Amino acid sequence: MNTTSARPLRALGAAAAALLLTGLLAACGATGESGTAATATTSAPSDAASSSAAPSDSAAPSDGGETLAYAGRTGSTALELLLEADPSAEVTGEGENAYVTAIGGRAADDAKSEFWALSVDGEPAQVGAGTLETTDGQEITWTLETY
């Protein structure tokens, strides 16, 4: 019987992906149309005592799941900013019908009843990412949650 767990390896892989994403954004300058840099913060669950991928203060997931947080920008939707912060994010549909299925290479698993939840300043979004117009100073957070 195998008594080892793959969880530490998954956490390490998620932390490495977060560092890679952060490095790519920094190297590319990740500037939007307004010329301001898009800054994203990611986190992943970890069994280790410390992790190099730390969540922002207000982006702590409620169930220990992965998160991605970034600042809102007046004139941009949450979906536009997500795709700037993580060009590899996977989305089905467009505009108001857009549904985010994967962020940072981590797909929500239907078999585990997972989904990527969108929140603004710590409150659940009332509209979808393709419709949600953000403003400067808002914190947009995606958290992998279960239903």
Results as ranks from 00 to 15, higher is better:
residue 1 M to V: 14
residue 1 M to R: 13
residue 4 T to G: 15
residue 5 S to P: 15
residue 5 S to A: 06
residue 8 P to V: 10
residue 9 L to N: 11
residue 9 L to T: 08
residue 10 R to N: 08
residue 10 R to D: 12
residue 11 A to V: 03
residue 11 A to H: 14
residue 13 G to H: 09
residue 13 G to M: 13
residue 13 G to S: 13
residue 14 A to F: 07
residue 14 A to G: 14
residue 14 A to K: 09
residue 14 A to V: 01
residue 15 A to I: 09
residue 17 A to E: 03
residue 17 A to R: 04
residue 19 L to E: 13
residue 20 L to S: 14
residue 21 L to W: 11
residue 21 L to R: 11
residue 22 T to V: 02
residue 23 G to I: 12
residue 24 L to E: 15
residue 25 L to P: 02
residue 31 T to L: 08
residue 32 G to H: 10
residue 33 E to K: 12
residue 33 E to D: 14
residue 35 G to S: 04
residue 36 T to F: 14
residue 37 A to S: 07
residue 37 A to V: 15
residue 38 A to C: 11
residue 41 T to D: 10
residue 41 T to S: 14
residue 43 S to Q: 07
residue 43 S to M: 02
residue 45 P to V: 10
residue 45 P to C: 13
residue 47 D to G: 12
residue 48 A to K: 07
residue 49 A to F: 14
residue 50 S to H: 07
residue 50 S to T: 11
residue 51 S to E: 05
residue 52 S to F: 15
residue 55 P to E: 11
residue 58 S to T: 12
residue 59 A to F: 00
residue 60 A to D: 00
residue 60 A to S: 07
residue 60 A to Q: 12
residue 60 A to N: 06
residue 60 A to G: 11
residue 62 S to R: 06
residue 63 D to G: 12
residue 63 D to T: 15
residue 64 G to R: 05
residue 67 T to N: 04
residue 68 L to N: 10
residue 71 A to G: 11
residue 72 G to S: 10
residue 73 R to C: 02
residue 74 T to R: 07
residue 79 L to G: 01
residue 79 L to R: 01
residue 80 E to C: 02
residue 80 E to W: 05
residue 82 L to C: 02
residue 82 L to P: 04
residue 85 A to D: 04
residue 85 A to V: 05
residue 85 A to E: 00
residue 85 A to M: 06
residue 87 P to V: 07
residue 89 A to L: 03
residue 91 V to I: 03
residue 92 T to G: 05
residue 93 G to T: 03
residue 93 G to V: 09
residue 95 G to I: 05
residue 96 E to H: 05
residue 97 N to L: 14
residue 101 T to A: 07
residue 104 G to Y: 00
residue 104 G to T: 03
residue 104 G to A: 00
residue 106 R to H: 11
residue 109 D to I: 11
residue 109 D to A: 14
residue 110 D to E: 08
residue 110 D to C: 07
residue 114 E to N: 04
residue 115 F to E: 01
residue 119 S to N: 11
residue 119 S to W: 12
residue 120 V to M: 03
residue 123 E to G: 00
residue 123 E to A: 09
residue 123 E to D: 09
residue 124 P to S: 02
residue 125 A to K: 00
residue 125 A to F: 09
residue 125 A to R: 00
residue 126 Q to R: 08
residue 127 V to G: 06
residue 129 A to H: 10
residue 131 T to I: 14
residue 132 L to R: 06
residue 132 L to G: 14
residue 132 L to W: 02
residue 136 D to E: 12
residue 137 G to N: 09
residue 137 G to F: 02
residue 138 Q to E: 14
residue 139 E to D: 07
residue 141 T to R: 05
residue 142 W to K: 04
residue 143 T to Y: 05
residue 146 T to P: 01
